[in-house]
Design a protein around this nucleic acid. Structure first.
Lengths: 226, 226
DNA sequence: CGCGTTTGTGACAATTCCGTGACAACTCCT
DNA sequence: AGGAGTTGTCACGGAATTGTCACAAACGCG
C-alpha cells in the first residue's frame, strides 16, 4: 500500500484529505507543522508528500527545497491558495512535482496523486550500470571495481545494490527490500537485510562505519545516495 | 517482460505511447528531455528505445549518435514528423534501427517494435568463429583447435560455447542456457548444464579447475570471458 | 547387433553463501 | 540520564550451490 505524508496546518483540511486518501486505500501520515513535516519526510519511507505552502515554523517552499537538497526524490504535490499564484512557479522551481490550487475537489487531488505515483513508477530504474565515488558497478556482467581495482560482490549483494540504488534518494523499508530483493514468500528476517547492508558497506564505502552512500534512516529503512 | 524507454517531449504523445505499450504488456520508462533520456538509456537496462527527434536540451540524432559511440547496442526506433523526412536517412546513418513518421497508428508502432525486438534476438546469436587464448573455434565447420592441435567437441558443446560466447561478459543463467541451447520444455536438469560446462572446461581451459574463460557466477550462472 | 560416442542423471565432496543469534553501540523518547 | 527499541558488528553453522566423477540411457554406424 502506498504511503502518503500530508503536511497541512488547517486541521479541517488535513482531516479531509486524510479521510479521502484513506478511503482510496492509501496509508496516511499527517502533521501540521513545517519543521515536523520535514522531519517526518526524512525519517519515513513515504511514497508521496502533499505539502501546503503556508505552514508554521517553516513554510512549504522551504521544506521542499530542503528535502531536495538532502537528495530526497519523493514526489511532492504542493497545495496553494489562489493568492499565492506566484509561489506556484517557485514551488516547482524548488523541486515540487505538481501543485493543486485551493479549493480543490477530492477527485482532482486523487487524480493528481495517482498521476504522480504513476510517473514515478514509469521512471523507476532497473540499473544496468552505476557509478559513485570511486566505485563502478556493471550489473549485467556482475562486475564491480573500486578505484579501478576489482571488487567482489555476491549476486544477492548485486541485486540489493541494484534495487536500492535504483531508488536513489528514496527511503526503502526493510520489508520492501525483503519482498523485492528476496522475493515474497521469504523466510529471512529483517536482520538479514541489515547484514547485507553491512557487508555492502564494507565493500563499497570508503569508511564503512561512517557510510556516505548507503545511509540508515532510523526506524524506517535504508537509503542510497550518490 | 521487455522494457522500453520512450523519449518524447510532447506529453500527450508520450502518454499515448506509454499507455499503448503498457497494454501490450511492455514495461515502459519515459521522459521528455534529450539529455535526461540519454542518461536513462545509459544507466538502465532497457530492451528498446523510442526516440523523438525534436527534443529539448539535446536532439534525438545527438542522443542516438552518442549512445552508439558509447557502445550501447539497444535497438533505437526514431519518431519523425513529415517535415523532417531528410533526417530519416541521417538518423539511420547515426545508428537508429528504424523510424516511424508522425502521425502513426498504434498498430504500426507495435508492429515495428516487435520486429526490431525479433531482429535483435536473431542477430544476437550466430557467432561464426571465435578465438581466445590458444583456442580457435569455427562453428560453421564445427571444428576447433587448441595450440594448432585438433580439438574434439560434441555438437552440444559447440552450441553451448557458441551461445555463451555470443554473450561475452554477460552472466547467463542455467535456466536461460537450458531454454536457449537445449530448447524450451526440456527434460534435462540444471545439473546437465554444469556437466557440459565442466567438460568444455576440460577441453578449452589450460587449467580446468581454475577456469580463465568459462567462469562460474555463484547463484547466478556462467559467464564467458576472453 | 555390438561398439564407441554423446547425452543425461545421481552421488558425493568442496565451496560459497546466507541466515541467525548474541552482544555492543547507538537513537529516540520522556 | 535511563530505558526501550533499533541498528552495527561479528562469528558460527547449516543450507544451498557447484565441481567432479562414474555410470546408465540413447544414439549412430558400420
Amino acid at each position: 500500500m502506498k504511503k502518503i505524508l500530508v503536511i497541512e496546518d488547517d486541521k479541517a483540511v488535513r482531516r479531509g484529505i486524510s479521510d479521502n486518501l484513506t478511503n482510496e486505500h492509501f496509508e496516511v501520515l499527517a502533521c501540521g507543522d513545517g519543521k515536523e513535516g520535514y522531519e517526518m519526510a526524512r525519517k519515513n519511507a513515504v511514497d508521496l508528500i502533499i505539502l501546503d505552502i503556508m505552514l508554521p515554523s517553516m513554510n512549504g517552499n522551504e521544506v521542499c527545497k530542503q528535502l531536495r537538497q538532502d537528495g530526497v526524490q519523493t514526489p511532492i504535490l504542493m497545495l496553494t491558495s489562489k493568492k499565492e499564484e506566484v509561489d506556484k512557479v517557485l514551488g516547482l522551481e524548488l523541486g515540487a512535482d505538481d501543485y493543486v490550487t485551493k479549493p480543490f475537489g477530492t477527485r482532482e487531488l486523487v487524480a493528481r496523486i495517482k498521476a504522480l505515483l504513476r510517473r514515478q513508477a514509469e521512471t523507476r530504474k532497473e540499473l544496468s550500470e552505476l557509478t559513485f565515488g570511486d566505485v563502478y558497478v556493471d550489473f549485467k556482467k556482475q562486475e564491480a571495481t573500486k578505484r579501478k581495482k576489482n571488487l567482489k560482490l555476491s549476486s544477492k549483494e548485486f541485486e540489493l545494490l541494484q534495487f536500492i540504488a535504483g531508488r536513489e534518494g528514496e527511503v526503502v523499508s526493510r520489508a520492501d527490500l525483503l519482498e523485492e530483493v528476496w522475493g515474497y514468500e521469504v523466510t529471512p528476517t529483517t536482520r538479514t537485510v541489515d547484514n547485507f547492508i553491512l557487508s555492502l558497506r564494507k565493500k563499497i564505502e570508503t569508511n564503512p562505519s561512517k557510510p556516505k552512500y548507503l545511509l540508515t534512516v532510523h526506524t524506517a529503512g535504508y537509503k542510497f545516495r550518490r
